[in-house]
């Protein structure tokens, strides 16, 4: 299922499971992450992605399986002995320390000399754009600034891997876009491996080299954002990433059952000379600015959405209730077993 990792592997998860009593938070995960990669674990809340991240950080010891970091088995290594740093969801900035003290904490614990700590902290704070705020306390900073401190603090000890636990969930939309760009830049400049956990599929697609989609403790699919979107392995992934029309194969007179997935932007109202894939009753046409969305109910009871440019609207000025034909190119559809 997994694609071959493009570069030298840095993280190897070998059949990792984590159970809390009868609850299996993570279930038999096999995963290799390449050095320098931006890897994202994507899934709804409770899918086990944060537990998996905590296993990588060392806060949880897996019930079974192994964790390797650069080939070394670190399954039971405590967090303070792992060259891995975390950006916490709520940032977890130490409230009784200044920004600079926060950023220098890891270096201090590693026993760096004072002068070297000062220099590295200045470097890191400049990197995250907070050079002037080293003397502030965290509670005197905005949410976006706190986020940057958390990033700088985690990057300061030059970890081999940076773990990011929903780092942008507390930010508003505009800041989130800004931080996404910032994260890409930091990833480029730091040149280390990033592992991001998020439930935001747009964020995952925009940032990552590869994405692992999780469901109920298991990884459903690991692929590049493009492949995840175009070639989801099942209806769960198809539905979670973007919007998908999932049409029972029987309704299209196909053999073998299963579902046929077509993205709404690939579906059009069949004009003259275009072969009709399926017919249905037009429920509504919604004008959404640059695009128009049509909702069509098939005789089999499936709802199909089609999206096309507003310009095409002039040709299809139809009243709701009319029977229409839907069309899409062969390459746009994908057959899913489940």
């Amino acid at each position: 299922m997994s694609e071959p990792a493009p570069r030298k592997p840095i993280i190897d998860l070998e059949g990792v499971s984590l159970a809390f009593g009868p609850v299996r938070a993570v279930s038999d995960v096999w995963l290799t992450i390449a050095s320098g990669e931006f890897f994202t674990l994507l899934g709804p809340s409770g899918c086990g992605k944060t537990s998996l991240l905590r296993i990588l950080a060392g806060f949880e010891t897996p019930t079974s399986g192994r964790v390797r970091l650069e080939g070394t088995d670190v399954t039971t290594t405590p967090p303070h002995l792992r060259p891995v740093n975390t950006v916490f969801q709520s940032y977890a900035l130490f409230p009784h320390m200044t920004v600079a003290e926060n950023a220098g904490f890891g270096l201090e614990m590693l026993g760096w000399p004072k002068q070297a700590i000062r220099e590295r902290v200045a470097e890191v704070l400049a990197l995250v754009g907070l050079a002037a705020l080293g003397d502030r306390r965290p509670d005197a900073l905005s949410g976006g600034q706190q986020q940057r401190v958390a990033l700088g603090r985690a990057l300061a000890p030059k970890p081999r891997v940076l773990l990011l636990d929903e780092p942008m969930s507390a930010l508003d939309l505009k800041l989130r876009k800004e931080m996404q760009n910032e994260l890409r830049r930091l990833h480029r400049e730091a040149g280390i491996t990033f592992v991001l956990v998020t439930h935001d599929q747009e964020e995952a697609l925009a940032l990552s080299d590869r994405v692992g989609v999780m469901k109920e403790g298991e990884i459903q699919q690991i692929a590049t954002p493009r492949d995840i979107y175009r070639q989801p392995v099942d209806s769960y992934v198809a539905d979670f990433i973007g919007e998908a029309n999932l049409i029972p194969a029987g309704e299209l007179d196909r053999e073998g059952g299963g579902l046929v997935m077509v993205r709404p932007e690939d579906v059009s109202l069949a004009g003259k000379g275009v072969p009709v894939r399926i017919e249905g009753r037009l429920l509504e046409l919604r004008f959404l600015g640059s695009i128009v969305e049509a909702a069509v109910a098939t005789p089999g009871g499936t709802m199909i959405r089609a999206r096309f440019p507003s310009a095409a609207m002039e040709e299809v000025a139809l009243p709701p209730g009319e029977t229409v034909g839907l069309a899409w190119p062969d390459a746009a559809e994908r057959h899913l077993e489940r």
């Binding site: 950080a57 060392g58 806060f59 405590p78 967090p79 303070h80 002995l81 891995v84 740093n85 975390t86 916490f88 709520s90 977890a92 900035l93 130490f94 409230p95 904490f105 890891g106 614990m109 590693l110 603090r153 985690a154 000890p157």
Partner: peptide, 13 residues
């Protein structure tokens, strides 16, 4: 536990 975890993550024994 988050703050203590953060410290452990930053190499504090």
């Amino acid at each position: 536990e988050t703050l203590e975890n953060a410290a452990r993550d930053l190499y504090a024994p």
